[in-house]
């Protein structure tokens, strides 16, 4: 693998994660627990779609084969997607969504904090802008963690079970491979071990404050870095891509 391929892969990982989790959030539109929350979830979805657009546009540029952000988002198959498995998990109930957002937002918060120092100017600029957005996303998710965790018995149980179900997808967030190794050396990407320490600390604190338990399961589901996804991604892409694929080459 050369450095250009490594950068392309890395940008897909970031961009696809934002794209897919943004898509999942947009599925909440019109179904939130109260009008205000509908509007809040769409705001967050919009930030993710914007972030994905910038990252995929840059990925296409680095690749140099004339693919733009839409070609990358709408014309790749499941096996070519590099989003983290946690981002494609279905919304479930509001508690599952909050659990997913909290675990992922915390990760993204610390990751992008380091990405702001990337030696790549474009990546650093995207990270500076996105980090402000993520700071708000994390606040939103954290406030809901507290309210659902320490709300009623029902909300507590729902949130705990959401956390338990998603826990097995958290470990791959911190896995590093050849791509990471090359890019850390370049100063392009951060060391995920550092992100992991910060993530574990914050997650523990919030879970404790929300009167919840750290899930005990030790099973780790991995695969996104090689494009091995859960079954959910295929259905999501089928819906997302069908209009675009139905009319090859059309402008929208």
């Amino acid at each position: 693998m050369n450095i250009q391929e490594a950068k392309f892969q890395y940008l897909l990982r970031l961009g696809d994660s934002s794209l897919i989790i943004g898509h999942r959030l947009s599925e909440w539109c019109g179904h939130g627990p109260i009008l205000e929350e509908d509007i809040a979830l769409i705001n967050i979805a919009l930030d993710f779609v914007g972030n994905a657009t910038s990252l995929l546009a840059y990925a296409g540029q680095i690749e140099g084969k004339g693919r733009d952000e839409d070609a990358l988002a709408y014309l790749r198959d499941e096996r070519e997607f590099r989003n983290l498995l946690i981002t494609e998990q279905p919304n479930g109930d509001f508690a599952s969504t909050i659990a997913r957002q909290f675990l992922f937002d915390t990760y993204m918060f610390f990751l992008y904090e380091d990405l702001k120092n990337s030696k790549d100017e474009t990546v650093a600029a995207i990270a500076v802008k996105s980090h402000k957005e993520i700071t708000y996303h994390l606040r939103h998710a954290t406030e809901w963690m507290l309210r659902l965790g320490d709300g009623t018995t029902e909300s507590h149980e729902r949130l705990q079970s959401g956390l338990n179900d998603l826990w097995m997808f958290t470990s791959e967030m911190f896995d590093m491979d050849e791509v990471d190794a090359m890019l850390i050396k370049e100063g392009f990407a951060p060391d995920l071990n550092k992100v992991k320490t910060a993530w574990e600390k914050r997650v523990k604190e919030v879970i404790a404050e929300a009167t919840l338990q750290i899930p005990t399961s030790t099973f780790k589901q991995k695969g996104s870095k090689e494009g091995k996804h859960t079954e959910y991604l295929g259905f999501l892409l089928a819906e997302m891509q069908y209009v675009h694929r139905e009319y090859p080459g059309a402008k929208w």
């Binding site: 205000e36 929350e37 509007i39 809040a40 606040r139 406030e143 309210r147």
Partner: peptide, 13 residues
């Protein structure tokens, strides 16, 4: 439900 959420909701709306 409370002041913190009211501020967040006001921001989003």
């Amino acid at each position: 439900p409370d002041a913190e959420m009211a501020i967040q909701n006001a921001r989003d709306v």
